[in-house]
Write a protein that binds this DNA or RNA. Structure first.
Lengths: 247, 247
DNA sequence: ACAAAAGTGTTGAGAGTACACCCATGC
DNA sequence: GCATGGGTGTACTCTCAACACTTTTGT
């Protein structure tokens, strides 16, 4: 039976930080990786960057980077997000932590994955601010990804789909004002199936989470659509009645 | 605009592991912490250990320990579980990663929290195999906990409650053979409310996930109860119809 | 007047909820 | 025979699911 130990520190660390056993308790490389979603051209897209160096040189990978010494994990993710996209104050959520030895061929790297959502009107992606290329890819047409990033992406998409059903994450993909058809499109795109217009509207309106703005959206040639916005918070859990499970 | 970087490595690390910038990219202390649940005496309990050293000396804390160099996060959690409880092959799931600087007063420690479930007939806790004391506490009567462990526990309980509704995690708390009343008790204990016996049985049986063993459990004095076991896997997601949301 | 998207109600089916009594056993 | 937990069915309500036509606008 091994001796029980829980310090939150390597042995001896509390007293003198340099005396930890470098073999068994070597500190770890910790990164954050981001799966950044948006909707454009009626498809769900996510942001990838092209790797400039080996390994996986020339492959596409999730944006991310090292967790710095004195920032929280979420701060770290928000910093990376800002660096990659120039966007702040958007929905961000921790996804899962991937730490298999061997997921990076060079050395052991533990990565805390986050997923983020950028509203369709805020994709101000400064096309390639430096050497590496950054692009939006449709989730249905992703290239081969570096490391275990495919697994991370799969997990993120699954989580997004699930959360659509009992939260208002879906709304994060839309501008502040939106039409019910636009909202329905977001749901259809992410769930990958058609929804009934009447049932969808009935359900959303029954939840009393949006309100009319009084304005309409003239797309030019057709009947103008009413614009709505959220009643309360930007993100909420829908207790009690789920949201769109049945669809 | 900061230069974009995603190596999965500290700068220079690939070529020569010692040249990374120790200030911005210092490697991190990474631990796993475990919230280990069981049900006994008609209450939901979890395992805590008493800390022998500062900080929080004498306080209770979640079992856990350092992630070793060449083990995966889950392996790390399973190893700790085995060391603390002597139990293997039980349900274990990654919960969330907590990494606020300052959550450990000594130095920065990132912890990947897991939650585990031990069936009520397997609590072979070798009472204190070493100096530190380990005990089961009812979740309604927890002592003050070390570090941010209260937050971790709260999160674990919330997750357990949620998962009860759309998975068969609840079944993990029971022995291989169990009565419907025992199953219902598990649900009532975790959800913290009474359930209707007829409705509960109707629902569970309609899911066709358990089968009669043909045996009965004689508790001595009353009518013997039929024993059941799972039909298929030990753990499953209940797609389509949720499971017990309505209760 | 016509093309195209916006907007609107009803009905049937199925699941959830509430509710009360008889059964089998040990003492 | 009695105390105790095991075991069973029905009726009401409400949400989900399917389904088609009218309205408003620009051209």
């Amino acid at each position: 039976m091994t001796k029980r130990r829980f310090d939150g520190l390597a042995p001896g660390e509390g007293a003198s930080p340099d005396r930890y056993d470098p073999v068994r308790f070597e500190r770890q490389n910790v990164t954050v990786d981001l799966v950044i979603f948006t909707v454009r051209d009626r498809t769900l897209k996510l942001l990838l960057i092209e790797r400039g160096e080996p390994p996986y040189q020339g492959s596409w990978a999730l944006p991310g980077g090292f967790v710095r010494k004195d920032e929280s994990l979420e701060d770290s993710a928000r910093r990376e997000l800002l660096e990659e996209t120039g966007v702040r104050d958007i929905y961000l959520e921790q996804l899962y932590t991937f730490g298999d030895p061997g997921r990076d061929p060079r050395t052991r790297v533990i990565t805390v994955a986050y997923f983020a959502i950028i509203a369709s009107d805020r994709q101000v992606l400064h096309a390639s601010a430096d050497a590496t290329d950054a692009r939006w890819f449709s989730v249905t047409g992703l290239p081969r990804l570096a490391f275990d990033h495919e697994r991370i992406v799969d997990y993120a998409i699954e989580r997004l789909r699930n959360k659509l059903e009992y939260t208002t994450v879906g709304f994060q993909l839309l501008p502040e004002q939106f039409t019910l058809t636009e909202l329905q499109n977001v749901y259809e795109i992410i769930l990958g199936k058609q929804l009934d217009k009447r049932n969808f509207r009935k359900k959303i309106l029954s939840l009393a989470i949006i309100q009319e703005t009084g304005e309409t959206k003239m797309d030019g040639v057709h009947r103008p659509a009413r614009l709505y916005r959220f009643s309360d918070a930007k993100f909420m859990l829908l207790k009690e009645k789920g949201i769109l499970f049945p669809f």
